[in-house]
């Protein structure tokens, strides 16, 4: 049961706007006829995601999202688009004819997920809104977690990045 004091109008309105924006941009990513438009739509989705992280009081991740995703990854994508000389204008060859299969699969997946989520977390509330323990995620806490209990995964990840860097160079260089 939802108490009046639990309803935070400002946040909810914010969420609604962000979510709507993300969904529209998401449709743009998967349906745009133009590669550059799709890539720019993805920027909007990511920015929306970052805004969501702020709503969820995860500022550090939000900032990282902006820096790494919107800053670095998207530039990479645009490079990729340019280097592969994809047409910047409309391109009818962008999609294959799998929509007949893909649409039912995606809808079924969403149906199952939505059903399970609604059933499983019917009106669970986010702690940040209930008043107890509502504190922003401290960056110091995150760094303590990364460098103490999650040190090994962190190392593993460093190796993944190293391997990816070397692999990308090996794959893409011209001999």
């Amino acid at each position: 049961m939802v108490l009046a004091s639990d309803i935070q109008v400002a946040q909810n309105v914010g969420f609604a706007i962000i979510a709507l924006m993300m969904i529209i941009a998401g449709v743009g990513v998967i349906a745009a006829r133009n590669v550059v438009h799709a890539a720019l739509s993805l920027v909007v989705v990511m920015a929306g995601a970052a805004a969501n992280y702020v709503l969820l009081s995860a500022e550090f991740v939000a900032v990282t999202q902006v820096l790494v995703y919107i800053g670095a990854v998207m530039v990479l994508f645009l490079f990729g688009v340019m280097l592969t000389r994809a047409q910047v204008g409309k391109d009818a060859e962008l999609n294959n004819k799998n929509a007949v299969v893909a649409a039912p699969v995606a809808l079924l997946l969403f149906g199952v997920l939505a059903y399970v989520l609604l059933k499983g977390f019917s009106d669970d509330k986010i702690a940040a809104t209930t008043g107890n323990g509502a504190k922003p995620q401290d960056t110091a806490v995150i760094s303590d977690l990364i460098f103490k209990p999650y040190l090994l995964p962190f190392w593993a990840l460093s190796f993944v990045l190293l391997a990816a860097v070397i692999g990308a160079i090996v794959l893409a260089r011209k001999d």
Binding site: V29, A102, L107, F110
Partner: peptide
């Protein structure tokens, strides 16, 4: 968003 991504992975040719 997940299901949109799945749809995109399946239908995009590029």
């Amino acid at each position: 968003l997940f299901c949109m991504g799945v749809y995109g992975v399946l239908t995009r040719k590029n």
